[in-house]
Simulated scan of single mutants.
Amino acid sequence: MAADWKLWIAGTRPRTLPASIAPVAAGAACAWAHIRALGVCTEQYPEPTVCTANRALQSALIGRFWPVVVLCAIVALALQIAVNYANDYSDGIRGTDDGRNVPDSDDEPFDALLGEPRPRKPQRLVASGVPAKRVLAAAGIAAGVACVAGLAAIVVSHAWWLLAVGVASLIAGWFYTGGKHPYGYAGFGELGVFLFFGLAAVLGTQYALAGTIDLTGILVAVCCGLNAMMLLMVNNLRDIDEDQRHGKRTLAVRLGEGNSRTVLAACVGAELLVSIVIVSALWPGWGVLLMISGIAVPLRMMRSAARHEFRGALMDAGYQTLFFAALIVLCVIVGGL
């Protein structure tokens, strides 16, 4: 039973979960910066009508801020888990995940120490023998949790147009590897995560909390999208041989390993440049210094990917995603003091 639960937990693909939580945190920080600015008004008597209206709006937005943040986080996490289970189901019935339990030559020194083989890649549920219908049901339950939390967030925030974003996110999650023509099998997975784990997640969160989006939110969304792309690109570089063998033409398969690493480096460079612009505006000096102090992580990620040390590369990609979100939160909090 314990092994079964461990397999289900592994099926959530924990290393991908930072890509769902980080955009919510970053979007919430952008929303807070906008809400805080509503209270900035020149002292006049009598107080201008616009200042009175802004203060009233600020009070209303602050009053519902944390409940909506929690609901947005639940949506993001549950939707990510639903997508992961759905991908497990789709890849499993196609046979794409076959061979994941073959030991990797890089793990042989560890095998001798542990006395047991280590899997080459994270185990998948269907490929490990779990009935496909159970995995699909788990994906449906997680998607249901995301829908309930999303509807609650929309009702509280009155951001009704986010219903369309939620529906689009569900459809995109399923057709990543599901359906007759999954876009994840055609090399558009990175574009999908950029749109939904970057733009939609950050800007949707900011709009739900602040009732608007701004340039800072857009730039932060771009960085979160690039971080999500990096995480998926490292994952697809790890699986490039198996994906090619099973006809899964990810971007890594289409470009080849060398060109894919070049694109990965371009994403790292673009993310760093946009990050400098954002942090310089939010917390000049110390914020930029903190950002520069974290450059070693994406550099190590690229080096690990080049050496086929994908376990470490994925950990660094996940850390980079969280680091950026934490940095934005810190810059908004401290930079606004």
Rank of each mutant, 00 (worst) to 15 (best):
D4R: 11
D4Q: 15
W8A: 09
A10C: 08
T12M: 14
P14G: 03
S20L: 07
A25N: 04
G27F: 09
C30L: 09
A31R: 04
A33D: 12
I35W: 09
I35T: 07
A37P: 00
L38C: 01
T42Y: 03
E43V: 15
L57E: 10
Q58Y: 00
L61A: 11
L61Y: 10
G63A: 14
R64H: 14
F65V: 04
P67K: 10
L77S: 14
A78R: 05
A78D: 05
L79N: 15
I81N: 03
Y89W: 12
D91C: 05
I93R: 08
D97P: 05
R100N: 12
E108N: 06
E108M: 07
F110P: 00
L114M: 12
V130R: 06
K133F: 05
G140S: 12
G140K: 12
A146Y: 00
A149W: 00
A159R: 03
L163F: 13
V165W: 10
V167N: 07
A168E: 09
A172C: 06
K180A: 13
H181L: 11
P182Y: 08
F188W: 13
L195P: 04
F196K: 03
A200W: 07
A208L: 06
A210S: 12
T212P: 00
G217H: 05
A221C: 09
A221P: 07
C224E: 10
G225W: 07
A228C: 07
N236Q: 15
R245L: 11
H246Y: 09
R249F: 11
V253Q: 08
V253N: 03
G258V: 01
N259R: 15
V263I: 15
A265R: 02
A265D: 01
A265F: 01
E271L: 01
V288G: 06
I292M: 14
I292G: 08
I295R: 04
I295L: 13
H308M: 09
F310C: 06
M315R: 09
F324T: 05
I328K: 03
L330R: 02
C331K: 01
G335T: 07
L337H: 13
